[in-house]
Design a protein around this nucleic acid. Structure first.
Length: 424
RNA sequence: GGAGAGGUGGCAGAGUGGUCUAAUGCGCGUGCUUGGAAAGCACGUGUACUCGCAAGGGUACCGGGGGUUCGAAUCCCUCCCUCUCCGCCA
């Protein structure tokens, strides 16, 4: 959520940002709701004041006295009017709230112009892509792949996009989760193991609702949402709290499975491990002082990159253009790993600064030492990392002539052996 | 899932229809005192929205929502949460 003052006092700033993000919004309608809300509020407050004054006066009067009875009759009318006006105000308030939730976050000045993913800027490139083996195959064509990554049985038991990981496949998942958690903890992110379902309030606070309603699995009859990312429960960890400024920045990491309906996805993007309804991810999150959030974003991105470097995977960093930025982000980097068999880049991490957008929705603040007053923190998060596409790259890039997959040195202690075998 | 008891400010805890902008204590802040500190004393100490150039006003908030009433922390309904006991169970 944006500060209503931005809409009210500097609508042109928002208009410029909307243009950069290529989003449409009827600002004038929101401004009209806002001014009618404020007019109504003043009216209601005046009536309330009248009631309060009468209340004080009546308390001093004898209960059955003529003055008292007269006052009751008089205040009955005021009370009825106040009730009516309040009901009207409530309707307007709800409209205003909904309107505010439909306002996207501002884009940062450093976000490049552009409309489509093709307009994203290649921020940096790491590792030698031409080292990739020319004869590498997509991971789903590797002999024995189906034994370790059992999509058929997953489809039977649950549905498409819910694979079983078997034997060395399961071992690889476990090793990567452990590896990522260890590395992140060493980098200063305290580990959290969150709930995998959240309520509507939490989903709204991070922007998953109402923006991505159809993308989440929803339970009945309890109306809980299966988390699309650990970002949702963990960001809400401090919901409605005021943090101590001295504790900032707060760093956390969390493993969770992620559940996404991915309605509307199709084609080669969804082959093999590229896009699943359930996948594993370790997420990194930060709550920071507003003055430091862009420095912290760079550090966050570098932390995510460090995981890929340690796994010896070639990758590139994209700086997302305005049109590809998303509803809630102010600035975002995507990390893409090179997948030698598919000969394409696969997104494995997304590092974003939300500034105060999430903090305002979730009411996460810090108390400023300077003013003594609470102010909204800035929140950031980034994958560190998402597993399936990292596995795609590992399988395809590290496939040996004998059909085994070389496990990167850094991962061996977690995997327990140097090669993954499809025949085991 | 069933029965019962609860949910009040940073914390503890009083308040069962009217001056509650919530007693009292603790904590915290400033000052006095002191060589310095403690103790003691004095004063202060929530959040949000809104009006105003400002000084300074106003309104709301006692778990959430709704109701009764001229008036609700207080009465009624409902939901959520916590605790105790029972049932079921990894």
């Amino acid at each position: 959520m944006l500060d209503p003052k931005i809409i009210r006092e500097t609508p042109d700033v928002l208009r410029a940002s909307l243009a950069k993000k290529h989003l449409e919004l009827d600002l004038d309608a929101i401004l009209a709701i806002d001014s009618s809300w404020r007019a109504g509020l003043q009216e209601v407050e005046a009536l309330r004041g009248k009631q309060k004054a009468a209340n004080t006066a009546m308390a001093a009067l004898p209960k059955g006295s003529p003055e008292f009875v007269a006052k009751v009759a008089e205040m009955k009318a005021v009370s009825a009017q106040a009730k009516e006006r309040e009901a009207q105000l409530k309707v307007i308030e709800e409209k205003f709230r909904e309107a505010m939730l439909s306002v996207p976050n501002l884009a940062h000045a450093s976000v490049p112009e552009g409309r489509t993913p093709e307009d994203n800027v290649v921020f940096s490139l790491h590792g030698a892509v031409d080292l990739a083996r020319p004869h590498a195959v997509p991971h789903w064509e590797i002999p024995g792949f189906d034994r370790l990554f059992d999509f058929a049985r997953g489809a039977k038991v649950t549905g498409a996009g819910f694979p079983f990981y078997v034997g060395d496949g399961a071992r690889l998942v476990r090793a990567l989760i452990q590896f990522f958690l260890e590395e992140n903890t060493k980098a200063g992110y305290m580990e959290i193991h969150p709930p995998f379902f959240v309520n509507g309030a939490s989903a709204t606070a991070t922007g998953a609702l109402p923006d991505k309603e159809g993308q989440m699995y929803e339970t009945t009859p309890d109306q809980l949402y299966a988390i699309p990312t650990a970002e949702v429960p963990v960001t809400n960890f401090f919901r409605d709290e005021i943090l101590d400024e001295a504790d900032l920045p707060v760093l956390r990491c969390a493993y969770s499975p992620c559940f996404r309906r991915e309605a509307g996805s199709y084609g080669k993007d969804v082959r093999g491990l590229n896009r699943l309804h359930q996948f594993d991810k370790v997420e990194m999150l930060k709550w920071v002082h507003p003055s430091t959030s862009y420095v912290e974003l760079d550090k966050l991105r570098d932390d995510a990159e460090a995981r890929l470097r340690k796994l010896e995977l070639p990758y590139r960093v994209l700086l997302m253009c305005g049109g590809d930025l998303g509803f809630t982000q102010s600035k975002k980097y995507d990390l893409e790993v090179w997948s030698a068999g598919q000969k394409r880049w696969l997104e494995v991490s997304s590092c974003s600064n939300f500034e105060s957008f999430q903090a305002r929705r979730a009411q996460i603040r810090y108390r400023s030492k300077e003013t003594g007053k609470p102010d909204f923190v800035h929140t950031l998060n980034g994958s560190g990392l998402a597993l399936p596409r990292v596995m795609s790259a590992l399988l395809e890039n590290n496939l040996q002539p004998d059909g085994r997959v070389k496990i990167p040195d850094a991962l061996v202690p977690y995997f327990g052996k140097e090669f993954l075998s499809f025949s085991a």
